[in-house]
């Protein structure tokens, strides 16, 4: 049992590390194509947006409290309040919502 678990952890670790390691380590050329460079420029924003929506609604196990936290996050993000402040406000607003709203 233990050897099965440890081997599975090893398999997981290798299969997580390889896709991270191979391109960064062995691709040493500079990409000149304007299209590819444009594509790579937009990837971080696209990833963050796809990670956030719709998952943010399901992050607390309760759509109403997640929505209130999310809206607070959008408001403070729009006011350019910085990463840590916005993250704290989403948590605090959602926590208050969970206490206040009877479910």
């Amino acid at each position: 049992m233990t050897s099965y678990l440890l081997t599975t952890v090893l398999v997981m670790a290798v299969m997580t590390y390889l896709p991270r390691m191979l391109p960064l380590t062995f691709f040493k050329k500079e990409i000149h194509s304007r299209f590819i460079r444009s594509l790579l420029y937009y990837v971080p924003y696209a990833v963050l947006s796809a990670l956030t929506f719709p998952s943010i609604l399901y992050a607390t196990g309760n759509i109403a409290s997640a929505l209130i936290g999310g809206l607070a996050g959008i408001y403070f993000a729009y006011r350019q309040k910085g990463l840590v402040f916005v993250a704290c406000m989403t948590v605090i607003c959602s926590f208050i919502a969970q206490i206040v709203i009877p479910f």
Binding site: L51, G61, A66, G70, G73, A77
Partner: peptide, 15 residues
């Protein structure tokens, strides 16, 4: 469960 929102809050603060 509320703390599960922290990462998303950070993402919002970027995008």
């Amino acid at each position: 469960s509320a703390m599960g929102l922290a990462l998303y809050g950070m993402f919002l603060a970027i995008i």
